[in-house]
Amino acid sequence: MTDTAPPVPSLWSGFIGIVRRDILLAWKRPGDVLNPLFFFAMVSTLFPLALGPSSEQLGSIGPGVIWVAALLAALLSLNSLFVSDFEDGSLDQLLLSPQPLTVLALGKAIGHWIVSGLPLVVISPLIAISFHMPDQSIKVMAVTLFFGTLSLSLFGSIGAALTVGLHRGTALLSLLILPLAMPVLIFGARTVSLSTSDDAVSAGIYFLAAYCMLALTLAPFATAAALRISNE
């Protein structure tokens, strides 16, 4: 017998492995995916019911309402990002694995986005139609939500990693994440409202895309550091 260690899988396979695992877990427990989606749909329904059915009013508040609902739905699902891994010990395995934790943290965040952010983007046109938003705004809404939910998953994973293992998680996570999410909300909702009056929207979309790139490059490092601290 030789005492050489088994070959370490490549970075890419580590990353893909995490993403695939999280998608598979979500597939086996569809409630985790569907609950935030239903929450998103229901919160958006609350506003027309509370404010009355006037279609002009709905059209003008629509972008803001849908964005706030998406933000809250993302928070709701972020709360459980690391909890089940923490409880069954797989988080310890991630910390021990030969792959850099940053790459695995990126995988967790991307997996979370595919499972909870992307479905929001997909059903947002339905809700936008029910708010009588014009066609061009519906496209802008989907594009801004695409970048916005990805940034939220990435920044939110920092907060989720900091609060994992704490018993006061839910409200605390919102306190940590919401101020950081403000740029996404401001640019997302404002860009969509501008598009309803045919204004230029490219600046807002570029900003969201840039913010998303910043989150992609920096957030995994912070998440990895936070995970190590939380599991000392």
Binding site: I158, L162, L176, P179, L180, P183, I186, F207, I229, S230
Partner: peptide, 20 residues
Amino acid sequence: ASAVLALVGAVNVPIIHYSV
């Protein structure tokens, strides 16, 4: 843990400021 949060917040402060 709170130091990580303070640093993440510090990166965000200018972005929040300019987006507002």
